[in-house]
Design a protein around this nucleic acid. Structure first.
Lengths: 227, 227
DNA sequence: GTTATTTTTTAGTCTTGGCTAAAAATAAAA
DNA sequence: TTTTATTTTTAGCCAAGACTAAAAAATAAC
């Protein structure tokens, strides 16, 4: 089939997905990522990965040495970050505007992230109020592909009298999400830890004008960014 | 490449585009559509078209007889209508929510129409207030693929004292669109023809509380649905 | 420092969806 | 009704991106 997206810089769906996968793996273990690791993360075979990273290397999107794994170039990194930016912006859209739940949006965003239009993303970002985090609390890279280095912590790691902004959840079972809804906790909600019980890890927290008790189980499944 | 969209009924991007093209051509000239016509409308070669319609025929999406062209089956028609539904809903989104202009949205919608998720479209439709027309005034098929038979007319064809709702434009040059903006005419705007000059086709119309003069050139580029 | 194991690469196939060039069927003209 | 022109199909080829099986390199174990 002919390439449907006729723009200046064009990468195929497969190329974008490979770069994205390598990007994520690099952020997990710093060094160049192994063929096997990429294959596993993409549910494909190592031989297919070798093929592709060789092609990406020719296009100067990754640095590749036989038997030594791959590493994104600056250009590759930028492209990957942009795909991730689109993915996360679309997730915000799906949750905030279409009322999907946090755990329903990944598959759809996986498709939407490949839509090609700079202007679309510029406008979508504006429409959503230029969010900094996606519904899972992961940071959204800016339009230059720069990913704000974020101090995402579990609420349970926060000390007494510290504040944090809710940026996501670790677990996302319906029960948990409903609990959060009930307590009016969502992305962007400011939380202050008023008290912390060392015996069971439970906490007293303040959300808006309300103060209430939460168990350790709740606190260890909620990501916050400290302020 | 492996199919990215893993759903129940899955058609490739190419298959969807062929069905869509055939759907449009059938609505232009009733009968089965010729290989050449499809090739031209898709900017591809007749031999490629033959290949594809044979594949579609095996899948019972079109009826095909050698040298006799193709015709969508009920199933094929439904699928095509659904792609068109998605295309037009996304166009509404782009114009109404992201403030794109009517003539900027086609390329992007061409990509978005292939995103696979029933739920997404259900919610998008609701989010947009279940619109009946896209920004070009073309009707949006319902979720069963039924296309409301519409009486789309040019404003110039409307008689004195008749009313219509603006459903789209024929020409969509920036100048024309800006003119319409200035006159506060957009999709859904009610227009009443107060007077009509037979000599030059100019009109006096009412839009909201304002009454003003428009030339024939304007009137013959504006689609309305009569009320 | 060999041998064994794991990882990675190569070589060769497959499918999708394009393409060109040539053949066959249909339609138009003489 | 032949001949000519057009349309459509077939046959064969190409690229992307997957796969399997076998070879080669790097690691680990003895």
């Amino acid at each position: 089939m002919k390439n449907v997206f006729t723009f200046v810089h064009m990468f195929t769906l497969a190329e974008e997905n490979y770069m994205k996968a390598i990007f994520h793996l690099e952020h997990e273990s710093a060094d160049e990522v192994s063929t096997n690791a990429i294959a596993e993360s993409m549910a494909t075979k190592p031989s297919s990965v070798t093929d592709m990273i060789q092609k990406l290397a020719e296009k100067k999107l990754v640095v590749y040495k036989r038997y030594k794994g791959a590493k994104l170039t600056e250009k590759g990194k930028k492209i990957a970050a942009n795909v991730i930016r689109k993915h996360r912006l679309w997730e915000v859209f799906l949750v905030e505007k279409l009322n999907f739940h946090w755990d329903e949006v990944h598959e759809i965003a996986e498709q939407l992230e490949h839509i090609q239009s700079e202007e679309l993303i510029t406008r979508l970002d504006k429409f959503l109020g230029s969010p900094d985090f996606d519904p899972h609390g992961d940071p959204i890279p800016d339009k230059h592909g720069v990913l704000k280095r974020t101090e995402k912590k579990l609420l349970s790691e926060i000390e007494k009298n510290q504040k944090g902004v809710c940026v996501g959840v670790k677990e996302s079972s319906p029960d948990f999400l409903q609990y959060l809804d009930k307590k009016k906790i969502s992305i962007g909600t400011k939380i202050t830890v008023l008290g912390k019980e060392f015996f069971d890890g439970s906490m007293i927290i303040q959300v808006g004008n309300e103060q209430f008790f939460i168990s350790h189980k709740i606190a260890e499944n909620l990501y916050v960014q400290t302020l």
